[in-house]
């Protein structure tokens, strides 16, 4: 056994690298791989649940690849491989690759900055007005961001695009505001219209906040109607319970009170000849 190992130590592959040192290096890399996996497993089980989801995922990756890189360094130093030649070649190769993979590197750097800046976190509802994308943020990974759109499909956005976009977070405040515009006829009493709508909102929209209370603003004395803007606040999670039905509630209240919602009309005066 010892003799066969000695034999392996005498077989040189290249530049002082023998079969024996390659074998030892392989064992070091194997052990490193096992340690990396075990550490990541222990981290995921015991520490990750106490951290935010994004941080836990990135820390797990950092630990895993950190240990693998460390194993590789131990491997190179134990085998006595001279990497100086490789470094020179690698430098030239790196420039070539750098030019060819600009966007990849850019996405990687953007990903790192996204992880540092944390403009939004996993599970947030976001809107990217410039890209016309809105949905729930699934994760921010090394090169891309995944968003589940509100139609159920998943879209992958390169980190660079995401990082340089305007990001509108829809869930970072405890409440949100929804607004609608409606019109009433000129002959109607504005205060009476506001009163009936206010009562109907209080009765049938339980998610609308009492404080701040619904706000009515006269938006415009338009061609056919007095246009009124209505602003209501609701818990951030309950946009779907309020915004899509707000106009329905307004119309129901106006109909019940017999207040006219006018349609565009034009009065034509015919001159007598």
């Amino acid at each position: 056994m010892f003799e066969s190992l000695q034999g392996l130590g005498e077989i040189e592959i290249a530049g002082g690298l023998t079969l024996l040192s390659l074998l030892i290096g392989g064992i070091i890399m194997g052990v490193g791989f096992i340690i990396a996996r075990t550490v990541r497993l222990l981290f995921t089980k015991y520490y990750a649940p106490t951290l935010p989801q994004d941080t836990a995922k990135n820390m797990g990756k950092l630990l895993y690849f950190g240990i693998l890189i460390l194993s590789f360094l131990v491997f190179t130093s134990s085998t006595g491989v001279d990497l100086s030649g490789l470094l020179v070649a690698g430098g030239i190769f790196g420039i070539v690759i750098g030019f060819a993979t600009q966007s990849v590197v850019s996405n990687l750097i953007s990903g790192i900055f996204l992880m540092i800046e944390k403009p939004v976190k996993q599970g947030d509802s976001v809107e990217l007005p410039g890209l016309d994308i809105s949905g729930t943020l699934l994760d921010i990974s090394t090169f891309s961001v995944r968003i589940r759109r509100f139609d159920g499909t998943i879209i992958r956005i390169p980190n660079e695009s995401f990082f340089t976009s305007n990001i509108r977070s829809l869930t970072s405040t405890p409440v949100r505001r929804s607004e609608v515009v409606f019109g009433i006829a000129y002959k109607e009493d504005i205060d009476a219209a506001i009163s009936v709508i206010d009562k109907e909102i209080r009765k049938s929209l339980p998610f609308v906040l009492m404080i701040p209370k619904p706000e009515f603003r006269i938006k415009e004395l338009a061609d056919s109607s007095v246009n009124i803007e209505l602003f209501v606040w609701h818990p951030r999670e309950d946009w779907g319970e309020v915004a899509p039905v707000l106009l329905k509630v307004v119309k129901r209240a106006l109909d019940a009170a017999g207040i006219e919602i006018p349609f565009p009309q034009r009065v034509i005066w015919q001159a007598k000849e």
Binding site: T173, P174, V175, P206, V208, L209, M210, I211, P212
Partner: peptide
């Protein structure tokens, strides 16, 4: 009393606390 079981916000919309009002 569902008609009076509503929410209210204490503080500003950016950093206030959502409450049952």
């Amino acid at each position: 009393d569902p008609e009076h079981s509503r929410f209210g916000l204490y503080g500003s919309p950016e950093s206030g606390t959502l409450c049952k009002y």
